[in-house]
Design a protein around this nucleic acid. Structure first.
Lengths: 140, 140
DNA sequence: TCTCAATTTAGAATAATTCTAGACTACCTT
DNA sequence: AAGGTAGTCTAGAATTATTCTAAATTGAGA
């Protein structure tokens, strides 16, 4: 037997939500499809909301925020706030870093192995490190 | 002869503003003193505004924002936005990095030489790097 | 002192995000 | 299949940080 059907992305998204302990509602399914359909992306709430509208997916902005936060809490997304005006959600949750293009405000992933850190200080008080972010700000 | 008088921080702050090409107004002088009086700090607009009030320095919140942005534009401060809820201004403008304490939202400087980066990718299209930020997020 | 551009200010405006409270729905139980 | 219920969704109000506006003030040079 072949793999689970993936043609429309249905089953996969459904499973991802279930595995995360999130009830697969119509809205979450639709948003998850938009987010995870193709390769990694960085989206703002407003962007995702507009994409949903463009595809006639009827969701409220509040639901988009709820979903993004729920997904983040369950490690399906990672939140990034570089530019204080709005935050972005990254579908790439593995270790990696970012280029930040100051002019456009765009983010681009940098694979973890492209950055080598030889020395890092210990957090004071022996606190646990939750992650290390490297942001290369680019004048472009 | 000894150095310029620094006792009240007056002359120094005045010179800093003039050197930056910023008119040394009463408000900017007062805010600069609060910012640069002692060692390096990370302040939000609201914080600085409250400090000013506490010291009976009469400035409007809009002026605090104006001053922080003017100072940043003239490289007397550096703006940092890690937590999307509000941005911080760092009086340390040299190369350095940060610990970010997730629970409290507090920032702590890491001296540049404490972090050694062995490899970094080139920005796409040969764009110029304006700076590299390393943020160690700590669960505390 | 006079002039004028730079600066300050109160309050309105904006923008991103969160909250509220009622309506809906996924899913478990029977 | 029906019902109950906690979880979810939603429109719109509320909140928060920040910026804008337009008028008043002021620093600094002539």
């Amino acid at each position: 037997m072949r793999q689970k059907k993936t043609s429309a992305g249905h089953v996969t998204v459904l499973e991802r939500l279930r595995a995360a302990g999130l009830r697969p509602t119509r809205q979450r399914m639709a948003l998850a499809k938009l987010l995870f359909a193709r390769g990694h992306r960085h989206v703002s709430a407003e962007q995702l909301f507009n994409e949903a509208k463009a595809q006639r997916v009827d969701v409220s902005l509040a639901t988009v925020y709820n979903a993004l936060h729920d997904f983040t809490a369950k490690d399906l997304l990672r939140e990034i706030s570089i530019d204080s005006s709005s935050s972005y959600f990254d579908t790439n949750i593995g270790n990696h870093h970012h280029f930040y293009f100051e002019r456009s405000g765009r983010l681009e992933d940098i694979a973890d192995d492209q950055v080598q850190i030889a020395a890092l200080p210990e957090p004071p008080g022996g606190a646990e490190v939750s992650r290390v972010d490297v942001i290369i700000r680019v004048k472009a």
